[in-house]
Amino acid sequence: MFTTPRLILIALGAALNCSIGTIVYLVKLPIYLDSIGTILIVLLLAPDRTAAFICAWAAGWVGLAVSGLINPFLPWFALTDVAIALVAALLVVPAAATFRARPLRGDVFTIQVALCGIVLGVVSAIVSAPVVVYLFGGVTGSGSAFVVALFLKDGLHLMSAAIASGLAADPLDKVLQVLLAALLYRATPGDFIAMLRASETGTAS
């Protein structure tokens, strides 16, 4: 399972998760995009779901360990990364062929990006909610805190408000991440993908 190219891919996915923050900062957009590396690994290792899940999980955790030096709150969301890797392995892997199809089938592509992104967002919101509530009291410093405040004012309990706020914000962010991961997957040279999938075809390095 862990051929040298795959180990390098895990490191690349982790590095991408860490570095994407720099890009978001440079272009000054109000988005996170911190799981693109994880989703991209799943796509690059499709159709092997087990390898895709384990490598994506490993990349997520290595990325959290390293980026935890800069943002000490990120490692608390370790379980969210496991959930994202698992759901991506189950849901995004079947979409890999569509994402790379030439010519692009726009309608199927759009539906699959939206479906994968929304499900990933819902799962991510639910898994993150306990950390958001317990560690941060429901307020993480992002704009979604105002949504939490709004729900609390409406009489929702803190956990319900945090989940509802996550459900309002996360699906959009994850749809964007799946879209970007799909575009990067389309642009990735075939040589590189062949190196990563080599162990399955008997040409392992």
Binding site: I8, V62, V66
Partner: peptide, 8 residues
């Protein structure tokens, strides 16, 4: 893995 990640 950590060393390669830091390098990348």
């Amino acid at each position: 893995m950590l060393a390669i990640t830091l390098s990348l």
